[in-house]
Design a protein around this nucleic acid. Sequence first.
DNA 1: ACACAGGGCTAAATCGATTGAGCGTTTTTT
DNA 2: AAAAAACGCTCAATCGATTTAGCCCTGTGT
Lengths: 346, 346
Amino acid sequence: MKGISIKDIAKQAGVSPTTVSFVLNGKAKEKRISDQVSKKILKIANKLKYKPNQLARGLRTGKTKTLGLIVEDIANNFFANVAKVVEDEADKHGYKVLYGSTEDNSDKARGLLEVLKYRQVDGYIITPTKNMEKEIELLKMVRKPVVLMDRYLPNVDSHYVVVDNYQGAFEATSHLVTQGYKKIGIITTMSDQVQMKQRMDGFAAALKKHGIPFNKTLTKRLPFEMDRAAHTQEIVKFLKTTKADAVFFATNYLGIYGIESIRSLGLRIGADVGVVSFDDHDLFRLHSPSITCVSQPIEEIGRQIVNVLMKELNHASATSQQLVLKPTLELRQSTIKETSNVPQQA
Amino acid sequence: MKGISIKDIAKQAGVSPTTVSFVLNGKAKEKRISDQVSKKILKIANKLKYKPNQLARGLRTGKTKTLGLIVEDIANNFFANVAKVVEDEADKHGYKVLYGSTEDNSDKARGLLEVLKYRQVDGYIITPTKNMEKEIELLKMVRKPVVLMDRYLPNVDSHYVVVDNYQGAFEATSHLVTQGYKKIGIITTMSDQVQMKQRMDGFAAALKKHGIPFNKTLTKRLPFEMDRAAHTQEIVKFLKTTKADAVFFATNYLGIYGIESIRSLGLRIGADVGVVSFDDHDLFRLHSPSITCVSQPIEEIGRQIVNVLMKELNHASATSQQLVLKPTLELRQSTIKETSNVPQQA
DNA sequence: ACACAGGGCTAAATCGATTGAGCGTTTTTT
DNA sequence: AAAAAACGCTCAATCGATTTAGCCCTGTGT
């Protein structure tokens, strides 16, 4: 039950393993192997359904045809969807994907990197956590292609694919203002990473532009590692004490917790509390009222990530590719203040 | 920037690579290596932060410490959550996970298996598609541990971890009946695989038990590969023509499409059309009205899968472990017919 | 007729770890 | 005191593919 090896082919063709290797790697011309022999080898390889042993090849070449995908949470809608696109795209290039979730925990992230390193993945797709600068630089040093996603590290010159978080938050917040909301709060994560900072900045800039003073008490930052109950509890407290009439939730899971919290207070989404969340989700689309959100172009994010990575794997480019894709503001009912909020199904 | 190898340690310790290998593999005693040398080697290995090259090791031993995870759709809530638990659990045993989605397409599944095979994964977690009997048997033949999930193949004796689909559907349907619904339909997939068959059977048995005749026109089967729009279109058509007063949706995505469809018709979920879906989802929990569903114990599913696989990897057992976990019926508002359906937030 | 240039292919080293066989020394057995 | 066993460790082959160096042969130029 062993696999077919290059030796088996060599034996059948009456040539050396070397020749077989040359032919199967498309170096027949370059290595001046005759067409006769070439064809014969190809035919036999086909007949035996030869598949190169990736371990052996990897051992020799250092290439494993494997990518490492480090996300914040593979169970999260956004990351799971990206993971799917990434898998699909990677597959087109003959790559497989090893994945792992950081839970936004730097130690876990470092552990993952460690494992992926000694598993010798060829390239990395990383949702970086705090203080990962050194690790990323190290990967650059050893010439391992890296593409950051969802966020990047301001002090590290690297490839990345993100969305325009500032713009997304700005539009979302502006929308809240133009819809007539006055006391607009933001609920975000403890993270002081760039994507959150930008969402915060976009939020603040939108308020400023519309002449609304930025009120620090209307800001709430919650740690990722808190559980659902604690999250909703905190959000409820926030809503009660601030009496905000609209909230911008800076990630999808905060949006979900937020909906839960607002409803548990008996407040009407839209009419009593305007809601916008970052990221789209089936829940946002189908909720009553439906939830306005900043939607990320997931397909394109995934495609571009792999795209950049493949370019690097083929021949490292001198300059970093830094793609900032445009998010879309999905206008829905959760930001309608005026009309009373009649559920669709009534 | 090369990694530390066993040779480097050997050199520093002034012993042969063989000795180092023995010590690092815990065979010091068995191979009668002195404590002195053992400790020295261990110390050096630690100092140099030696990490074995998995490729080399795999090439020699045939073990890659990698698992293959084949799911229907990694972007699907259920599978993504299982994937996360699987990754966590596998990690505890030093295993990494390669994943892939079948899209319920046998050819894609076969392709994935093929790739995983020549990547020499040590064990397989498979959500089988139609007609995969031969492939699974083949894996058994070559003594590769396999655990099926979500569904199993009736004609193949293999390990699996599933939920009691019959029971779940039975309870869900019984619940609909006792809530006063009379014309109960089921929307399921084209798949004639066991999990769907059992859900169908559980559905039918519940009707029968309550003296409701099974009406074939109240059954709708939709192909996985259809897109969202086509799905909702079909469901709308079904609802219009059958005038069903309740529907059991056999999977989470069908439930989601179903909610969309019912609402687009202006019908009230619960009051006009009772709804139960298989699988839980944030959307079901937070929808207005909230959606009654059959919830699968995801944590335990993931844990057991890895558990069974690890047992196999250590020493193949003679008998197949076939775990059927109990799902939970989450009672929510979508199956309340009597009271008019007031959204929570009103 | 002799050097030289391809042409067509192969031997052997290599990647890093594992492992069966075995070698010299000391200790125990009888 | 000779034989057997126990010690403590190493040699070299092996996994499968890649790759460098180079061998032998034929044909060309001078």
